[in-house]
Simulated assay, not measured.
Amino acid sequence: MTNDVLKARAEALLALHQPGNPVILPTVWDAWSAKLATDAGFAALTVGSHPLADSVGKSDREGMTFDDVLTRVAQITAAVDVPLSVDIESGYAEAPTRLIEGLLSVGAVGLNIEDTVHSEGGRLRSSSEHAQLVGALRAAADAAGVHVVVNARTDLFLRQDGDESDRVDRAIARLKEAAAAGADVLYPVGVHPPEVMRRLTAELPLPVNAIARPESADPASYGPLGVARISFGPFWQAALAERAREILARWI
């Protein structure tokens, strides 16, 4: 894929992020699920680390190597012709330049980067350390000539880190640092009450990514909360698995 094509896809992906009119990026894990989503009419996709790892018998939290991820992403981009973002967990202990060059080499134009360091016992990066990584990824993308869409994620809510009373404050401060370092989208991952999501979208300076359960959440409920991007994490794959178990149980 040429740099011009990659540039155009990255620009198209970024332009889809409109607070109040969220882009829905189905979270896929292989060429089959990607084709299902694009055939249904979705304009862009994201690859989730959890369903991706499950699909190849590996564990989430960097049970796959970065090369494993690239192999599967290449299969997806060969099968569909839409912008693709990839969850690269905490970076697989790879250098930012290697991460950006690897993603571009298989046709991906966006990434999620989280602040839990799986290669180091699951520790939480400090806010400044996470921001530095975001900045290094932005610099590597600039050097490659493609504005890779960087979705900076914090796991404070998933980890239930620290005291609940100031967790939203700490998440906002952490993500503001990532924004200043060059992120394009901010991802306070977790299923939040409406009042929390409204505060996050109101106080954060960039488009905000929300996670949704596709089989039960109301698609129309996210725009009024100011959300700009919706993804499914492992939930779409889990919903398909539940339906598959129901079908298979008829034959046991």
Results as ranks from 00 to 15, higher is better:
185 V>H: 12
242 E>T: 13
216 S>Y: 12
248 L>R: 12
232 F>S: 06
177 E>P: 03
187 Y>H: 15
173 A>C: 05
143 A>G: 06
199 R>D: 04
144 A>L: 10
234 P>L: 04
252 I>G: 07
192 H>W: 07
152 A>I: 05
188 P>Y: 10
249 A>F: 13
175 L>S: 06
151 N>F: 15
158 L>A: 10
214 P>G: 03
142 D>A: 15
234 P>A: 01
144 A>R: 10
181 A>H: 02
186 L>F: 12
191 V>Q: 12
148 V>E: 14
235 F>D: 11
243 R>D: 15
188 P>W: 08
193 P>G: 03
215 E>I: 07
248 L>A: 14
147 H>P: 15
156 L>P: 00
144 A>G: 10
156 L>K: 00
172 I>S: 00
149 V>L: 12
182 G>D: 06
157 F>R: 05
164 E>V: 01
205 P>A: 15
142 D>R: 11
150 V>M: 05
199 R>I: 03
152 A>M: 13
172 I>H: 00
223 G>Y: 01
201 T>E: 10
216 S>K: 11
181 A>V: 04
184 D>V: 08
184 D>I: 09
237 Q>I: 00
226 G>K: 01
213 R>Q: 13
239 A>L: 09
139 A>M: 12
225 L>E: 02
206 L>V: 03
158 L>M: 14
173 A>F: 07
231 S>E: 05
